[in-house]
Design a protein around this nucleic acid. Sequence first.
DNA 1: GTTGTTGCAAACAGTTTGCACGAAA
DNA 2: TTTCGTGCAAACTGTTTGCAACAAC
Lengths: 140, 140
Amino acid sequence: MAQELRRVFHSIGKRFTNQRQRIWEVFKEKSSGLTVAQAADLLRADGIGHTTVYRVVKEFVELGFLKWVHGADGEHQYVACAGGHCHPLVCRDCGRVQLVDCQGLNTLQKLVSVETGFRVDGHHLEIFGVCPECLRRSPG
Amino acid sequence: MAQELRRVFHSIGKRFTNQRQRIWEVFKEKSSGLTVAQAADLLRADGIGHTTVYRVVKEFVELGFLKWVHGADGEHQYVACAGGHCHPLVCRDCGRVQLVDCQGLNTLQKLVSVETGFRVDGHHLEIFGVCPECLRRSPG
DNA sequence: GTTGTTGCAAACAGTTTGCACGAAA
DNA sequence: TTTCGTGCAAACTGTTTGCAACAAC
């Protein structure tokens, strides 16, 4: 995966620095999302400044390697994303984020297009709920 | 509509002040969304401070009278919403926001629930595109 | 009169920018 | 050795809080 990142960065004339690699790792290791501030805290030990984290996260989002989500408390979080079009399913309880791919939305977009006359070309969907583990712990 | 707002506010033990009425009017008159800052600018002439606008917008969102959307430039905007469950369709060009109701999503939620084991209980969907007027002006 | 509401100023959080130094190619 | 990336500090924007004056009930 880091190899793929390296290739993509080089292909657009950018360098794949140690910082970019570490920042990627931090997000990849965390199954629930992280805010930029949280990631920056973790990366401080490596001597990586928060400015860099903001800049790199923005690049990752543009390249499609990170997706942003509203976490359980409504904060802006980012989640590693292998690629392809998928949507975050956020546990309101533990904050875990699982990505699901929803084919059905293409149909929905076409329908909306016909109904409204808009040319529909994108969407942002987040789904909220409670994950199986949290349900087991406190069903209710 | 203002009457309904008055009733709802009273029913939860809050007052329906002139400020709340004016703030509601500003959003209702604007078919595309407004950021809180934009609304506060418009309301300055009435002597309403931005603090109040922030506070009241938050109340309106909680009561379901306003919905928040990412505008064409990604800023946080709020749109008046008659009530009921509906989703914003945002024109990337002129910023106009039209609300559509998408029945199909209930089915989708059930499907996701079965696939993942989550108890799904909510979602946030925004749809982006280009509105008919903008298409006519510059088809492309 | 009582209690919730407002406006101001100031604090605060999250994010971006300017610039000199450092590191990848 | 050239160009891009980084880190620091500081600026900036959007949002919230403390508090005294005020208005709805």
